[in-house]
């Protein structure tokens, strides 16, 4: 990569710029430290918040550097405040884009997750449901976690994630209801208007079963409706939700 030496020089020479870059990296490291220390106590939404802030403060110095460099070239002088705001916006955009790739990637590559292979009962179940709904069978991943939840990622590579907890806790019909609900999310992808909802779900993948969210979220209701329609009853879906919330209640004690 050809980088102009003078630009780097002028950028690094300015003490203010050095300070901004250092500060951002220090904040990022502090956030990472906080995440590692509090990992056990934090709720999932808070964990994700910390991780995203970490990514933001890691991306920020690069955005800041690039911005300062380009505006130096074009305008020969840069307003400090303007550079900060503009590179902040760039960093936010990059963080959001990264989250699309990074979150699924973390889940897929994490040592606590394994891909469910074709010979497994769960995969065959999924295959059957997907065929009935007329969509391609997504990849299925099993997460080594006792907490029961399920979520799906419909972008890039459609995947459904199930924890050991939910597989163990639910009876076959109840698990079917959950799988149908998640498949419905993957089917929903087709509508670009629902993009924001998907984004929201990606940011809080754990909220799938949260009553509050499902009440508010149109998309959750639609996914539930699909499961109910496919099973001709809401019994299994309701008892699945009941069991999950019972577990959460026990875990909160």
């Amino acid at each position: 990569m050809a980088m102009c030496y003078e630009c780097v020089n002028t950028f690094i020479d300015k003490p203010v710029n050095q300070l901004v870059v250092m500060l951002s990296i220090v904040i990022a490291l502090l956030l990472l430290g906080l995440f590692l220390i509090l990992r056990k106590q934090l709720r999932n939404a808070e964990k994700l918040g910390l991780l995203y802030s970490f990514v933001f403060f890691m991306v920020f110095p690069f955005a800041y550097y690039l911005y300062a460099r380009t505006c130096q070239k074009i305008l020969l002088s840069c307003q400090m405040a303007q550079s900060l705001v503009s590179s902040g916006v760039v960093a936010i955009v990059v963080t959001i884009l990264l989250s699309f790739v990074v979150v699924p990637f973390i889940y897929m590559l994490s040592s606590r997750s394994k891909s469910i292979t074709q010979e497994n009962v769960l995969f065959r179940k999924m295959e059957r449901h997907a065929r009935k709904m007329g969509i391609k069978t997504p990849s299925v991943y099993l997460l080594d976690k006792a907490e029961p939840y399920a979520f799906s990622i419909s972008h890039i590579h459609p995947s459904i994630f199930l924890t050991m907890g939910i597989v163990e806790l639910l009876k076959p019909k109840e698990l079917d209801a959950v799988l149908l609900h998640e498949l419905a999310h993957i089917q929903q992808k087709s509508s670009p208007l629902k993009f924001t909802n998907t984004l929201f779900r990606l940011f809080t993948p754990i909220s799938n079963f949260n009553i509050l969210y499902s009440e508010l979220n149109e998309e959750e209701k639609d996914a539930d409706a699909v499961a109910v329609r496919m099973q001709n009853t809401e019994r299994h879906l309701l008892s699945a939700k009941q069991k999950v919330s019972e577990y959460q209640k026990q875990a909160a004690i």
């Binding site: 099993l142 050991m164 597989v167 163990e168 698990l175």
Partner: peptide, 20 residues
């Protein structure tokens, strides 16, 4: 108990899929 490292666990396949 598993989090406190007092018990170990492994994943086993079964009729319903998997279990600890």
């Amino acid at each position: 108990l598993h989090e406190r490292k007092l018990v170990k666990r492994s994943i086993e396949t079964c009729r319903g899929g998997y279990r600890y």
